[in-house]
Nucleic acid binder design. Structure first.
Length: 647
RNA sequence: GGCCCCGUAGCUCAGCCUGGAUAGAGCACCGGCCUUCUAAGCCGGGGGUCGUGGGUUCAAAUCCCACCGGGGCCGCCA
């Protein structure tokens, strides 16, 4: 069974080169590095520079000698070989490749591209895990869309994947939101629940900040610290501005919250108390906190269902790590290692010592000269901290999987490293090695400082609304005849596709600069562009069926350079899946699918299928169109972008 | 101060890991193409000191060093 037609071609080229080198120079090459030549120079190239240096023969001479040798050898998927400068260029036998694709697709059918690994893993992908105190914003959207695409990409590589959402219900943020919620008398949400909680959280945070700054201001004035005083005044001004903006959003709620807040003598202490009681599983506090979190998560689910993202499991931090006693066990066991010390009344984990003792610097990618900072394991009041609980959570995850991928912002790099080092200290070296932090950079919105604490963010809900609104206008303009119902359905698909594509197309390590005009551009290099190509391919299939034309592969009929290029591109699809999956890089799919769509559009424009010159040619082209349709559909599917049949 | 990521066309991004053939797309701009499978399309055009300066190499956007600019981390936040 051939899942990956392109690799057949690659392997043959490798074999020929190896064989020829052996025969000509009596040299065993272990690894053959092949690359893609520029257009017009074949399909795979072997560079003869390094070999030439080893043999002390000019590379162009090596290339010619190899060509002469290979010319005499038997070839399957290779039409010819050319020596050009220091390169040996292999031209694929496109007809044979087409036949292999045909064979493969006749077996796997609509699943074409599925390319199972020889060592399938049991993987938990943890992603999104947004704090349940505000709506999902653009940064969270990148995480969700990336994690979701990644999960599917891994499944297409034959891995067993489960999607987990870690509910951080034990953090300070949640306690703040719960405190505010309580001050308001646990109101019924007056809007989408996560937006309501987001408002309460931001307002409460803001009031806390203002109170703190006022107190610090008084101290600074009393002790005549002029510089400090002025900087605090400035900071206070900013928060007062934040307060004003929040009040504009909902005067009634804002004022009510201020009133109750001002009656509290020591809000900070109360918040700490909430956290402590929750960790101790005090029933009243549990009810309060759960109520806040559930409201927020209900909002998340509503938003996520719009973009078809679902989780197999919502893992409550409190249950898994604290109430189960697992975190305490982790602390006890860490305490028994030589890597725990006490500093200012708290317990700390000496992460850097683990790096040194186990010589993990290189393995874990610790930069030279970088001291991994110690990790504080507990607060002085005995409550635990996030990363400490995350150690427990990770151990829990490994009870259900052998590989864990955490899709978490790059800013948590150090914490993720400390986590892995703690696992090593606990004797779980294997876990530490199979724990992958897929860090991604944040989404920048020009002219806006996003922050949940100040309530300043572009939410995924708004983003979707705007994109769909825009798509609706676009569909209206382009296909005026459509009934309302269908127009709306298409607008939804297009609007969502545009957003997902734009957030997926940038490699995770790069910050995305969010520009509305860019995201809502429905032309080339966009989700809708690819969706359009799919709709076109689909439409040709429908029209052909109506006219009784059936797809049939006649390899010799596909002679146009565009047809050949398309055959090579679809042959490569399973190989792209492999590469993107193993590198955890969905953006590679975006690039590929965009290229495929471009070439397909040129083909569409130039070469008629239904009205082809002959029946055979029509059947062959229809076969090609069908493969392209399957590839587009599957690639969009992995990316989580719906593939419309009409636009 | 230490460390990490990023810097490629006016704008948004590929390419860098694994050095080699004229540095690729898209947007915007200019000019063409709808009696023929949907023009969200196609064809053509202009536009680049690959942040700067060194180094390694026959060969550097790619590797090394320094510096500059943007972001991030170094917390009894998550």
């Amino acid at each position: 069974m051939i899942y990956d037609p392109y690799s057949v071609f690659e392997k043959e080229v490798e074999g020929l080169v190896k064989h020829a080198v052996k025969e000509l120079y009596d040299l065993e090459l272990l690894k053959i590095d092949l690359e893609e030549p520029p257009p017009g120079h074949g399909h795979l190239a072997f560079k003869c520079f390094e070999l030439g240096r080893r043999l002390e023969i000019r590379p162009d001479v090596v290339a010619r000698q190899l060509k002469d040798k290979i010319d005499k050898m038997k070839k399957e998927c290779i039409e010819r070989v050319e020596a050009e400068r220091g390169y040996l260029n292999f031209y694929a036998h496109v007809e044979r490749i087409a036949a292999i694709v045909g064979e493969s697709i006749s077996i796997v059918g609509e699943k074409y591209g599925f390319n199972p690994s020889l060592a399938p893993k049991n993987i938990i992908v943890e992603f999104l895990s947004a704090n349940p105190v505000h709506p999902i914003h653009i940064g969270g959207a990148r995480n969700a869309i990336l994690g979701d695409a990644l999960a599917r990409l891994l499944e297409w590589r034959g891995h067993k994947v489960r999607r987990h959402f870690y509910v951080n219900d034990m953090g300070r943020q949640v306690a703040i939101a719960a405190f505010g919620y309580e001050l308001l008398g646990r109101p019924k949400p007056w809007t989408k629940p996560d937006h309501a909680i987001g408002f309460i959280y931001a307002t409460t945070s803001c009031l806390l900040e203002i109170k703190r700054l006022k107190e610090e201001l008084n101290l600074a004035r009393r002790y005549g610290k002029d510089m400090e005083y002025r900087s605090k005044v400035k900071e206070l001004d900013e928060w007062v501005g934040v307060a004003a903006r929040l009040r504009e959003r909902n005067e009634e709620m804002f004022d009510r919250l201020v009133d109750s807040f001002n009656k509290e003598a020591e809000p900070e202490r109360k918040i700490s108390f909430i956290m402590k009681l929750y960790e101790e599983k005090d029933p009243d506090v549990v009810k309060l906190i759960r109520e806040v979190c559930e409201l927020c998560i209900d909002g998340f689910k509503e938003t996520l269902s719009r973009v078809s993202i679902y989780f197999d499991s919502f893992d409550w931090e409190s249950e898994i790590t604290a109430w189960s006693g697992l975190t305490q066990e982790v602390i006890r066991r860490l305490e028994a290692t030589p890597y725990v010390a006490y500093s200012k009344g708290t317990m700390i984990f000496l992460a850097n010592e683990v790096v040194k003792d186990y010589d993990l610097g290189e393995k874990f990618g610790v930069p030279k000269g970088f001291e991994v900072p110690p990790l504080t394991l507990m607060r002085s009041d005995g409550t635990t901290l996030y990363t400490t609980r995350d150690i427990a959570y990770t151990i829990w995850k490994f009870r259900h999987a052998n590989t864990v991928i955490n899709v978490i912002g790059a800013e948590q790099k150090v914490a993720q490293l400390q986590l892995r080092l703690a696992l090593v200290a606990l004797g779980y070296k294997q876990m530490a090695e199979n724990l992958i932090h897929l860090g991604y950079e944040l989404v920048k919105v020009p002219g806006m400082k996003m922050s949940g604490r100040t309530g300043q963010y572009v939410t995924l809900d708004e983003l979707l609304d705007e994109s769909i609104r825009r798509a609706n206008a676009e569909v209206q303009a382009r296909s005026p005849g459509l009934p309302d119902e269908e127009r709306k359905r298409i607008a939804e698909i297009v609007g969502i596709g545009a957003i997902k594509y734009s957030l997926l197309a940038v490699s995770p390590s790069k910050p995305v600069t969010f520009v509305w005009e860019q995201v809502l551009n429905f032309e080339r290099n966009s989700g809708p562009f690819v969706q359009y190509a799919h709709a076109r391919a689909h439409n040709i299939m429908v029209k052909a069926r109506e006219r009784g034309l059936k797809p049939h592969l006649h390899p010799e009929q596909l002679r146009d350079p565009l047809e050949k290029e398309l055959v090579m591109m679809v042959a490569k699809w399973p190989n792209i899946v492999k590469k993107a999956s193993d590198k955890l890089r969905p953006d590679i799919l975006c690039e590929y699918v965009n290229d495929l769509s471009m070439v397909f559009n040129s083909f569409y424009d130039k070469l008629p299928v239904i009205r082809a010159e002959s029946r055979e040619l029509g059947e062959a082209r229809l076969w090609l169109v069908n493969v392209i349709r399957v590839v587009l559909k599957n690639c969009l599917g992995i990316l989580g972008i719906p593939a419309p049949t009409r636009m």
